[in-house]
Design a protein around this nucleic acid. Structure first.
Lengths: 230, 230
DNA sequence: TGTCATCTGTCATCGCGTGACATAAATTGC
DNA sequence: GCAATTTATGTCACGCGATGACAGATGACA
C-alpha cells in the first residue's frame, strides 16, 4: 500500500473520529461540516470527497456492518431454516464485537450512543435497515424456494428486523448487554412462534402465492379477527 | 369560520395539491419549494409558514392518519387482547378509506404512489412510524399491565409494525388490494403465532422484567439456537 | 528528473430553511 | 363606516449542506 493510500485512510478516519466526537460533544445538528473539516485541517470540499454527506459520518460504520451481515448470512449452511440462519448470523456478528481493537470498539460504542440520542440518526439508521430489507428478503426467499414476493418470506424478514430494531431500542452500553437483550428477545420469540413457522407451507407448491384474494377484505370486522384472538 | 381561516385553509390545500402533483410529474427531488410556491402564487417564505419542510407536503397526510390510528386504538374495548386491538383498529381505518370524498381519496392514493416511488420518502414514512412506536408501545403495555420497557410489549408492537410495513411493501393501487394484503398477512400471522402470545406471561407477576440476564449471552452460539429451530 | 495521475483548495452556485422587519389584509370595537 | 388591533404575507439577508469547475500541489512511476 503506497503512501498516498495510507494518507487517504488516515484522513478518512481522522474525519470520522473528529465528526463523531464533535457530534457527541455539541450535538449532531449543532455541528457543521466546516467544523469537522477544520478539526482535521482540510477544506470543506475535501470532506465531501470522503463522505457523501454529514450523515454518512455517523452511519458508515452501521452500513459496513450491514454489508458484513449479508455476506455472513449467505454463507450459512443450507440446512438451517431461514429464521435460524438469520438468528445465528446475528449472534455471530454480535460475538465478533468482543474481539475488537480497543479503539475500534470504543468508536462503535460512541456511534451507538450518538445514533441513539439523535432522533434524526435513528431515522437514518432505520432507512439503512429498510434499504437492505430487499436483499435480506431475496436470501430468505431463496432458502424457502419461493419468490421474494412471497408473504411468508416477508413475514420472516419482518419479524427478524423487528427483533433487531427492538434490540437497538434501549441501552447501548456494552456489547454484553446488547447480546443479553438479543437472547431475551429470541427466547420470547420462541415462546410466541409455532415451530416451523418460517418454513414454506408444504401444501402450496406453486412459486407465487403473493397476491391474496381481495374478497377476504369484505368480511365484517369482527369475524376475521378471531384468527389471532385464539 | 371567518374569511381569514377559510383563505388559509384554501392556501394550504392548494400548496398540498400543487406539491403532490409536481412531485409526481417531475419527481420529488427535482421539484423545488420555489416551484410549488410559484404554482400557488405565494412567496417561498409563505410556503414555509404552512409546511415546515418540503418533506411535510408529502407526509402530512400519513402523519394525520397515524394520529387518527392512535386515537382509535385508545378507544378499543379493554376486553380485546393487545394485538387484537391493534389489528382491529387497522382494519377499521382501512375500511374508512372507502367512504371518502373522491378528491380526498385520489389525493391519498397519489400520496401513496408518490411515497412508494421515492426512496427518500419511504425512509421518511418509516421515521414517522418509528416515531409513533413509542406511543403505540405505551398503549400496549398499559393493556398488558406492564411497563413500556417490557420485552413482550415490544414484540407485540414490532410484529404489528412489521405487518404494517409489509403491507406498504408493494402495490398501492386501490384500497381493496391493500385490505386484501392486510388480511393475507393477518392469516399468515395466525399460522405462525401461538394463541395468547400477546398476553402477559401469567407466571411473572412482577411489573418489570425488562432487562434480562446478560449471562445468557455467554452460551456457545450453537446451544441457544435450538429455541427457535424447534 | 520529468511526466503523469490524482488529491486538494478555491470559487461559484443551488436548494432548503429561518429570523427580522415592513406592508397589506382581515377582525374587532365604536 | 372608520379607527385600532391583530395577523398573514412579502422582501431581504443569512447560514448550512451539497455539487461542479478549474487550477495548483503532491505522490507515483519510468
Amino acid at each position: 500500500m503506497g503512501l498516498r493510500e495510507r494518507k487517504k485512510e488516515r484522513t478518512k478516519t481522522a474525519l470520522l473520529d473528529a465528526g463523531i466526537d464533535l457530534f457527541l460533544s455539541q450535538g449532531y445538528e449543532a455541528t457543521t461540516v466546516d467544523q469537522i473539516a477544520a478539526e482535521v485541517d482540510v477544506s470543506t470540499r475535501t470532506f465531501f470527497r470522503y463522505f457523501s454527506s454529514k450523515e454518512e459520518v455517523a452511519l458508515c460504520l452501521p452500513a459496513e456492518e450491514q454489508e458484513a451481515f449479508l455476506a455472513a448470512l449467505a454463507e450459512r449452511p443450507e440446512s438451517e431454516s431461514p429464521f435460524t440462519a438469520l438468528v445465528r448470523t446475528g449472534r455471530a456478528r454480535l460475538a465478533l464485537l468482543r474481539e475488537l481493537d480497543e479503539t475500534d470498539a470504543s468508536r462503535l460504542l460512541k456511534v451507538q450512543r450518538l445514533i441513539q440520542t439523535t432522533p434524526a440518526l435513528v431515522a437514518s439508521r432505520m432507512r439503512l435497515i429498510v434499504h437492505n430489507e430487499r436483499r435480506l428478503l431475496a436470501e430468505v426467499a431463496r432458502r424457502q424456494g419461493r419468490c421474494p414476493a412471497d408473504l411468508r418470506a416477508q413475514l420472516v424478514v419482518s419479524v427478524f428486523l423487528a427483533m433487531t430494531m427492538a434490540c437497538y431500542g434501549d441501552c447501548p452500553q456494552d456489547p454484553a448487554a446488547l447480546a443479553g437483550r438479543y437472547e431475551s428477545l429470541l427466547a420470547l420469540a420462541e415462546d410466541s412462534l409455532r415451530p416451523g413457522w418460517d418454513l414454506p407451507a408444504p401444501d402450496q407448491a406453486g412459486p407465487d402465492p403473493a397476491v391474496a384474494d381481495p374478497a377476504v377484505a369484505d368480511r365484517p370486522a369482527g369475524e376475521a379477527a378471531k384468527v389471532v384472538v385464539g
